[in-house]
Design a protein around this nucleic acid. Structure first.
Lengths: 191, 191
DNA sequence: TATAATATTGAATATATATTCAATGAATGG
DNA sequence: CCATTCATTGAATATATATTCAATATTATA
């Protein structure tokens, strides 16, 4: 790859990083193109040389999110409680070590719930349901006695939403001390 | 109070309810005045008869939030673990029974973290710190053996952020099954 | 070095939406 | 029943910001 293309890639990445940061702090709608370009240190016009529109930029971030960090959350055939332990551990590790991934985590849930998200984004996210497979895993764990009694769906909600709330806090405010993932597991673990 | 003023109060409340709902779903910036007036069933112009501006409407909601529902979160001299139990219980109760309060809960944290919030709002919220008093309570609970070991601040974060994440889910999606508050207490309870 | 291709800028334009306003309709009090 | 006040509307205006574009600077390569 020529030095020209390398530069271009680098620029694009700078925009993506700044965009991600702004989007999670201010939300998609209230993030101005100028917020992003100021953070990168470029003119407003130049951003459109790299991304066709604000929406395309957002879309690309979501695409990165779906393919990358979020795959941690895809349930496997692991022992249920082990899955929840390792997932929480991994997410909490990202939260502290890799701010891009931490922020990505927040962007994804915001996009998922925000009704103002562009239609194209909603489409991409529509078949990205983590609760259904998680609920099944919880049930399995209840059968084998590692997960506490109670509505499996509600337990899934409690687990993921707790992680989500903590992720949001840390992504926006990186100097927040990170809780132990074990504490969160105790939401669902049978004692 | 005359029937005229009663009507006016009622209208104002309708706008506040619709505004709250829209703000938590779409965020302050991407909520259009027309989103709100359509939900209420009035013309756009009329809203300005009741509220000077979109920002003033938002401000009034925050003011209601600070004085009302959020006072649940103000620590008392209760036994620490009792405080956390009763607070969680009460919040979870609101989440299911009183959608206005549930949404208010979400609005407040969004306002707290969203850097795009109007300055006037930030001012109102700036001395609304729940973590400091909560951390002290956690320490007290650790001394008397009811709360688990670990960084008290991180425990406070874990507790409140977990509740926050769950509240957001339920406020936006009211048919979500509500987790048991006991599960959340297990984040901090010593076993 | 000359030429072509690409990066960059700032100003111009388009668009979306908050806000204002003049006009109309409805309710109230005398 | 009239006059006054308030509620309501829809169109006009103001404003903010996304997007385009023509001009300029920079870089790569022949």
């Amino acid at each position: 790859m020529g030095v020209r293309e390398e530069q271009k890639e680098k620029r694009r990445k700078e925009i993506l990083v700044a965009g991600l940061d702004m989007f999670i702090r201010k939300g998609y709608a209230s993030t101005k193109i100028s917020d992003i370009t100021e953070q990168v240190g470029m003119s407003v016009g130049l951003l459109f040389h790299y991304f066709k529109s604000k929406e395309k930029l957002y879309e690309e971030l979501i695409t990165i999110g779906i393919s990358g960090p979020m795959s941690v959350m895809a349930p496997t055939d692991m022992e249920p409680i082990k899955f929840f332990e390792s997932t929480a551990k991994q997410i909490f590790h990202y939260l502290q070590s890799d701010s891009f991934t931490a922020k990505m985590f927040v962007l994804m849930s915001q996009a998922f719930y925000n009704e103002a998200a562009p239609q194209s984004i909603k489409d991409k996210l529509s078949n990205f349901d983590i609760y259904t497979p998680t609920t099944l895993l919880i049930q399995k764990g209840q059968v084998n006695g590692t997960i506490r009694e109670g509505d499996p769906y509600a337990l899934a909600i409690a687990y993921w939403c707790a992680i989500q709330g903590i992720a949001e806090q840390i992504a926006v405010n990186p100097d927040t001390p990170c809780p132990e993932s074990e504490w969160i597991i105790d939401i669902i673990r049978r004692k």
